[in-house]
Write a protein that binds this DNA or RNA. Structure first.
Lengths: 137, 137
DNA sequence: TTAATCCTTAGAGTTAACTCTAGGTCAATA
DNA sequence: TATTGACCTAGAGTTAACTCTAAGGATTAA
């Protein structure tokens, strides 16, 4: 079975070897095996697991919480409910994150229009006596 | 004109007074006026400006970049182009953030289903010989 | 055989964004 | 009048997530 070195994995996942070792130190990769002299040997399934870790990280889950999940995975079927609940919770969190970003997007688009108009006339004064501030953003 | 104390503003924006003073220290609030003895007096427009700051912060813009924008605001009409470009860039960044979250959402939903099926049969083994790993997440 | 290049660890250093403490001012109340 | 509680600053401390350094081991290439 093909295995990968830490730098190959780092390259593939767009991480540094430092980061991967840090994750290991934090207990995020207990499944990665070693050669007799201690070198990490990543299997395809390890890379898949790291992709799940990256997925959770990209939704702003703290590393300590990701570790809880990894620990549950190691404990086996007795933790299926916790893991299911975790992903359902995460789903709700990500939905909220998307909604929040969409809300802020409207504000940003409004500002784009505001500055477009200001640029056309050469001055922000066009928006004066408007509820949009001038010297404050 | 009605003004607000730092603790009133903190409450309204769901921040701490420490955070607001920190923002001020970092140059994010040069527009906030003071009473003769030094107490900050927030106007409505200052709170609006802070809401823009919070908007940018919620899209992961670093405080130093937000400060650039605030500085441009203080410089007046000569920086209209920079400010327009900044909001257009931010718009693209937020669009990418939303797309990224949607992509991760699919992974999470897939995991929800995975664990739902596993829970129904009481074991993760149901997914074995599948490309989904068992002891790795 | 020696140099380069990978790997390892322990532990120190960095950065961003707070978060708090110490010591002080000022205005209102008991 | 004294105490309470809000405000202030400077600067120290905290936390998360890296990021790097030092010192050393194994493998390959000249």
């Amino acid at each position: 079975m093909k295995t990968y070195t830490i730098s190959e994995v780092a390259k593939e996942l767009n991480l540094t070897v430092y980061t991967l070792r840090y994750y290991d130190k934090e207990g995020l990769m207990p499944f990665v095996e070693r050669t007799p002299n201690g070198t990490r040997q990543f299997k395809e399934s390890d890379i898949d697991a790291l992709k799940i870790i990256e997925c959770l990280k990209s939704t702003a889950m703290p590393i300590k919480e990701i570790k809880n999940f990894i620990d549950w995975c190691s404990e086996g079927d007795s933790t299926l409910q916790q893991r299911y609940d975790m992903f359902m919770d995460r789903k709700a969190i990500v939905e909220a994150q998307i909604e929040e970003l969409k809300k802020q997007m409207e504000v940003i688009e409004h500002k784009c229009l505001y500055y477009k108009t200001a640029l056309e006339t050469g001055t922000e004064a066009i928006h004066k006596d408007n509820k949009m501030a001038i010297s404050t953003p």
